[in-house]
Nucleic acid binder design. Sequence first.
DNA 1: TAGTGGTCTAGACCACCGG
DNA 2: CGGTGGTCTAGACCACTAA
Lengths: 236, 236
Amino acid sequence: MLKYVEISNDIRNKIIDGIYLPNEKLPYEKDICDEYNSSKMTVKKALDILVAEGLLVKRRGSGTFVKDINPKERDNLIASTQFRGLSSFYANHKVESIILTYKVINPDKNISKKLLVNEEDFVYQIIRVRSVDGVYAVIEEMYMPIQIIPGLKKKHLYGSIYEYIERILKLKIQSAHRTITVKKATDYEIKHLNVKENDPLGIIEQVAYLDNGQAFEYSIVTHRCEEFKVNTVVFR
Amino acid sequence: MLKYVEISNDIRNKIIDGIYLPNEKLPYEKDICDEYNSSKMTVKKALDILVAEGLLVKRRGSGTFVKDINPKERDNLIASTQFRGLSSFYANHKVESIILTYKVINPDKNISKKLLVNEEDFVYQIIRVRSVDGVYAVIEEMYMPIQIIPGLKKKHLYGSIYEYIERILKLKIQSAHRTITVKKATDYEIKHLNVKENDPLGIIEQVAYLDNGQAFEYSIVTHRCEEFKVNTVVFR
DNA sequence: TAGTGGTCTAGACCACCGG
DNA sequence: CGGTGGTCTAGACCACTAA
């Protein structure tokens, strides 16, 4: 385990457990260094992770303080700063999938551009309706190059595809570029998501990358509006 | 100017100008250190900014590579990783505001909680319809404590409030926590945004913070769906 | 095995805040 | 002014990749 990850996990837990209270000033960086037996740079890196998560504020010249946000928002923030699939985001809920489409196709121009493959190459096309605790949540349309993700079988689609990629193929998922937009439900969504005509929907279009920089997934996930909530922290 | 900001700006420009091409390997960190006459840690910090912006990928053991994304997406990414007001986001367009409400009120429970002020304190309530190049874009409902943002006059509301905060009050805006949701247009929006009944809308609810950690703004910005597009990069 | 990026240190110096 | 966080260095050592 890396030292700065250890330190930031420890301090995050202290905030969650209320050992450090909202608006409380953290010990001086110097003391934190002593406590964890680390250098200033390492402690700074650990604290900066928590600043990026929106849990801490640093004021040059005065100190480091716990941000005063309510616990629900805080948990939301911690969850949102991580990139997870639906299955692990709703780890304590029952996530099920209905498979509408599962085939191998040649990508159209848009898909081949997103995944950086040729139009002659083959990609999986997967369309799933996913439910959480028995309630329809999203329609997920997904494209992955078979060269990068070999051996995917239908049985994997009922659970988490990310788990297959990471645990079976031993690949590392690194990041994703997302575009969030809004649209009105079409007949297709009315049918499969059990929404009403004219209901608004949230759409997350995403290209996801492995840690070697390869794009391995292009997906368009359409969310029912009740289920749709995205949290972010932005910096100036 | 900070060294790592200089280096990252320089490399970002080289990517934008095509001096470093997609998929190209960057010089070894060692050579970059020599080029900018800096230490390894400083160069690493500069490159990590570009990784966070989604422009670069690093592969331990092989090198640092320019991510192969199309120029339009790339520009979108660069714009989205920064936290700006509408005025500076659309700096090359004509941004106008219609002021629907401008008064000082006692905050309700929700607002006082978000801004961390008492319900007896006073906050500005500002509601503006903002248009870009003559087209209605958003309704912005905004609350700011008068103690933190003193002296705001109606004339400031026609332009950029952020500019008033930064240039006149000399305060530094640091970050914002955002929640993105979706809803169906109500009569209020149909009237003021010139949208049709049942049109979907994108909502960004935001608490913004100064660099001293104070919350200075709570706002709910309702976007017409055509105008609504949020880009993010997430990491696992 | 050589070459890459990642972590970590100990300490110098600077910028900013408050009394 | 003392105390805080921010930047930067020079170099040690480690983890991973590819030839």
